[in-house]
Design a protein around this nucleic acid. Sequence first.
RNA 1: CAGGUUGGUCGGGCAGUUGCGGCUCUGCGUUGUCAGAGUCGAGGAAAGUCCGCACUCCUUAGAGCACGGCGUCGGAUAACGUCCGGGGCGGGGAAACCUGCCGGACUAGGGCCACAGAAACAAACAGCCGCCCCCUUCCGCGCCCUCUCCUUCGGGAGAAGGGUCGCGGUGAGGGGGGGUGAUGGUGAAAAGGUGGUGUAAGAGACCACCGGCAUUUGCAGUAAUGCGAAUGGCCAGGCAACCCCCGCCGGGAGCAAGGCCAAGCAGGGGUGAAAUCGUCUUCGGACGAUGGGAGACUGCUCGUCUCCGAUCAGCCCCGGGUAGGCUGCACGAGCGUCGCGGUAACGCGCCGCCCAGAUAGAUGACUGCCCAGAUGGGGUAACCCAUUGGACAGAAGGCGGCUUAUAGACCAGCCUGAGGC
RNA 2: CGGGGCGUGGCGCAGCCCGGCUAGCGCGCUUGCAUGGGGUGCAAGAGGUCGGAGGUUCGAAUCCUCUCGCCCCGA
Length: 116
Amino acid sequence: MQSKFRLSRSEDFKRVRRIGKSYAHPLVVLVIQARGDSTPVRMGVAAGKAAGNAVQRNRAKRLLREAMQPLLASLASGWDLILIARPAIVTASLEETRLALTSLLQRAQILPADES
RNA sequence: CAGGUUGGUCGGGCAGUUGCGGCUCUGCGUUGUCAGAGUCGAGGAAAGUCCGCACUCCUUAGAGCACGGCGUCGGAUAACGUCCGGGGCGGGGAAACCUGCCGGACUAGGGCCACAGAAACAAACAGCCGCCCCCUUCCGCGCCCUCUCCUUCGGGAGAAGGGUCGCGGUGAGGGGGGGUGAUGGUGAAAAGGUGGUGUAAGAGACCACCGGCAUUUGCAGUAAUGCGAAUGGCCAGGCAACCCCCGCCGGGAGCAAGGCCAAGCAGGGGUGAAAUCGUCUUCGGACGAUGGGAGACUGCUCGUCUCCGAUCAGCCCCGGGUAGGCUGCACGAGCGUCGCGGUAACGCGCCGCCCAGAUAGAUGACUGCCCAGAUGGGGUAACCCAUUGGACAGAAGGCGGCUUAUAGACCAGCCUGAGGC
RNA sequence: CGGGGCGUGGCGCAGCCCGGCUAGCGCGCUUGCAUGGGGUGCAAGAGGUCGGAGGUUCGAAUCCUCUCGCCCCGA
């Protein structure tokens, strides 16, 4: 993912976590917040200590980024997203992660339901 | 060949598509949070953060105390609590080999050693004594008394009884003194061991052998130490991973160190003391000395340094602001081949190489073939087919170690066993 | 990067400094009695590799080293 679509500031993370809406799945939690303008979607990925050691946390974040890659083009504009990894994602495959993300984004009404 | 053991190396490989980060080059009616091309892109432990360094800053860091660490010898190293090679005392193993510990416990001192035991290190208690004194009792002899018999009337004899009597005892008991040192069920541990001589009883008191200690000394070794010799005297419990003593080392903080730039905020509040003298003077003050005060040197003392007569500055405390960029930061105690020195750790030399630098944090995904491995089937076997499948783990300033995790594969040395030539 | 603390029956804690005693206390648990039954009360009882490994010592929950897990603080 190119760095201009990333969420990189600590205050951005704090803001989204504080006032954003969250959607949960056994593999991952999605937090979204509307920015109000029409700039492209920005997203950040997080994995806490509960996800495992450093290798497992990095794998979870890579898996989430890789699964998000083909979905980015069809997302609505003007949103900041945070994906938080849960422990179960360590044993999940790329396809399972992509299905989980698709259902979460559709529930959040950012991804049109007819595409998949 | 099988098993064991030690050391070392690797820890999937090749190709393609795509994604991400750094660097270089090129392109642009668009100089960018741009596009394209090339190239590089995790480890043996990157981990835990247990030691040691370099480096940076702190008002030089100087001395002493305190505190902390280390402790056989020699060497390596920038340094180390690390490594290499030795020594001593143990433990495991049939062997190769592995493994633990290492200054001082009389000649500084304190403390502890539960239970048991007489006693836990210093004597006492019980015991032993044919050593001395006293008392009681018993025995023997003598003397005396009573009794019996004999008599020359002086006494004599006796197998009987007795004594505030004497002597002796190789009898028994008690008390006191003295001697004695290991006999005292114990215990982890009890002041050399065995045998003899000796003695009132005993004991290194003495003797023989053995063990250990101290001093002197010979040989080997750089040394720790080893193998001996002579002499001495039996003085010598354990714990310093209890305090302690001796020797050596350590100033403190740490890359969020530190430097530069940009932005922002208020030099806003509190707090403390004592002056005196001299010189110069533009008469505002400046400098110097003495004394004192405040503060710093991360615990204390000395010592050193900074500031102080001012509504000003400094120090200390509170409060306020910032949370961005660049650098430090990748040419280094660097890596590799070869040669030389050294038993080795390691050192020296020549040549070659440049080898991650992210900052919400880059290595991922997919496909094909191969290589170990596992399972199933076929085959006497080599092997073939199918399925499956590769551990521990991710840089965040760097380096040297230590420790811990780790599927497996390969190489070499050594030991034991079996077989063949 | 630096510093500190904790781990002991099911739960919450003592004991550790300065080694030895049956590892103790409260709640909980089991059984019995008292009650028509429950609560409650009384009596009896079970339950602990002292986080793990190694060492020092005659002897370790305690001392030393390494290690695992958890928590807290400062920059």
